[in-house]
Design a protein around this nucleic acid. Structure first.
Lengths: 174, 174
DNA sequence: ATGAATGCAAAGGTTTTGCACCCCC
DNA sequence: GGGGGTGCAAAACCTTTGCATTCAT
């Protein structure tokens, strides 16, 4: 099942505009600068070095600006920077998470774990079963109910993972 | 809610009783019979054969009666039935899902995909970060909000995956 | 100079596949 | 008899690790 993540304005199969995802502000360059800043803050504090490969990987992430699997990232990276191998990508993914640049986010319908750029505001996901695209939502009443349910079971919620798999109504109408 | 003597009362690290999970009715034997019935319904309809190995795997699943990873299942199976290998287990897991006997359910904190026995009523999950045990919940208002959110975004929800990661308050009090 | 980071290759783990053989209908 | 199912081994993947080398500070 081929999955092409071209970031064009071409509407999705269901007639929607592709969601802009994580770059909630600014364009790719803005996004990259922001990520770099966060990363630098972390590495500075830990006394870590910088490296060309690391910046290259971050560059690809900023461009792609969406939910992605390690494999997708590795492919894009090795296309543009053929000498940067999977090991380096994986090592840096780990680092990016520690640095608060990325977070692990959801399991695609394929079963792969996906990553996304860390954002200020919490959000959950809707995965479209027709076009395979990932949308975001946030609903305060769900959040509240969640807390209520957890504490009624004497749990203290720390985190959650809420994905709705759905179909475009527009597509169905075709 | 009948109690199975085997589903013992040894409390979890956090002081709770271990949840009974999927065998919502009856004991292991009852559970096995139910699964077998569902499976037979499917295989009959498709003109598939039966097999000893398949039944052995189902037997282990019925005994285990909780959320499990392929790896865990493979280990238990090969312990009791040393000639049943991973390939057979995987092939049957796929079949069991098609047959509506199992469903893929959530990603453990380790990242593994887990399976569970398909039940009538939908439920979601709370994973305890202290004792690693998996509990279930169902909340009508969350379900409703979910539908509302999805349709406000012009989606038709088909399915969802909602996991709360939480801590036992009792444990924290220690 | 001294850790950090990389690149490469090899190892680890999990899941799938090919194929000859066996078994159920 | 014929197709489904199995067992074994190999292949295919994805991810991690070891190690010598390069790089940043």
């Amino acid at each position: 099942m081929p999955k092409d993540a071209k970031n064009s304005k071409k509407p999705l199969p269901c007639g929607r505009i592709r969601p802009s995802h994580t770059p909630h502000v600014g364009g790719k360059d803005e996004q990259l600068r922001l990520l770099q800043e966060r990363l630098d803050g972390y590495t500075k504090g830990k006394g870590l070095n910088s490296s060309a490969s690391r910046n290259h990987i971050l560059e690809i992430i900023a461009e792609q600006g969406a939910h992605f699997s390690p494999t997708q990232l590795i492919q894009k990276v090795s296309l543009r920077f053929p000498n940067v191998g999977p090991a380096t990508v994986y090592r840096n993914l780990t680092l990016f998470i520690e640095a608060g640049v990325l977070r692990q986010t959801l399991t695609a319908s394929s079963g792969e774990t996906l990553y996304e750029v860390e954002t200020e505001e919490h959000h959950d996901h809707i995965v479209c079963l027709d076009c395979n695209e990932i949308f975001e939502f946030h609903d305060e009443s769900i959040e509240k109910s969640q807390d209520r349910v957890a504490s009624s079971m004497k749990f203290k919620p720390e985190n959650h993972w809420h994905v709705i798999y759905a179909r475009c109504e527009q597509l169905k109408r075709k």
